[in-house]
Amino acid sequence: MIEALAPEGSAGVTGKPLLKVADLHGWYGESHVLHGVDLEVAAGEVVTLLGRNGAGKTTTLKAVMGILPKRRGSIVFDGRETISLPSRAIARAGIALCPEERAIFSSLSVEENLMLPPQVLPGGLSREQIFELFPNLAERLSSQGTKLSGGEQQMLAIARILRTGAKLLLLDEPTEGLAPVIVQHIGRTISRLKQEGFTIVLVEQNFRFAASVADRHYVVEQGRVVDMIHNDELDENIDKLHAYLGV
């Protein structure tokens, strides 16, 4: 499914990509944040967006999800142009977002948070499968959503979008601010989700974490994709990547 020998200049995807973003521009109010993002993601791939703070990674995810109000260009998902669809229609097409701020609802219990997103497509994980991935959640179902620890909230934010049947998961910094043991748990979960056939776009600051789970990395700089690196070519490119990320 992943083409390691892709010719220079292609996004590294053979066949029809599940997600194809072309010349994507985005604005927050008057400020022009995305300046023509191009990227492709094949079905079943895990792809990360790397880059410095403010490069436009989160904004790219928001644009794909349709919650960035002002966006132009092309976002084709599963063969369908979604650039002008409202976010609820994009969700129903099979994309789901786990936002950076997690967005756990404080007026809902853990169970209500988990069951909130409606099923949009067949093939989502069952409750049992979700509790197998995140056993902690099963014990906290009646707690208020925001009474969970940071790690548990992150697990809940991921868990609730696994039920819906969405095929493409957009995970925005799922490891931010979490203890190493929980970061490992989330890493294992992402690998497991890949095995289950989910396609994942991951925004990550933690480069080592990204390298442990992803097939490819896009480097985002000033609202553009400036480079793409296959995970197995990472060693040769490590100096270049450090320069991009300023580490």
Binding site: M65, G66, I67, P86, S87, R88, A89, I90, A91, R92, A96, L97, P99, A103, F105, S106, S107, L108, E112, M115, L116, P117, P118, V120, I161, T164
Partner: peptide, 21 residues
Amino acid sequence: GAYLRAATENPTMVGAFGINV
């Protein structure tokens, strides 16, 4: 009611779950 409470807190996110806010 859960939709309603959630949309009261964060309508954007509820819309992004596919609910017609």
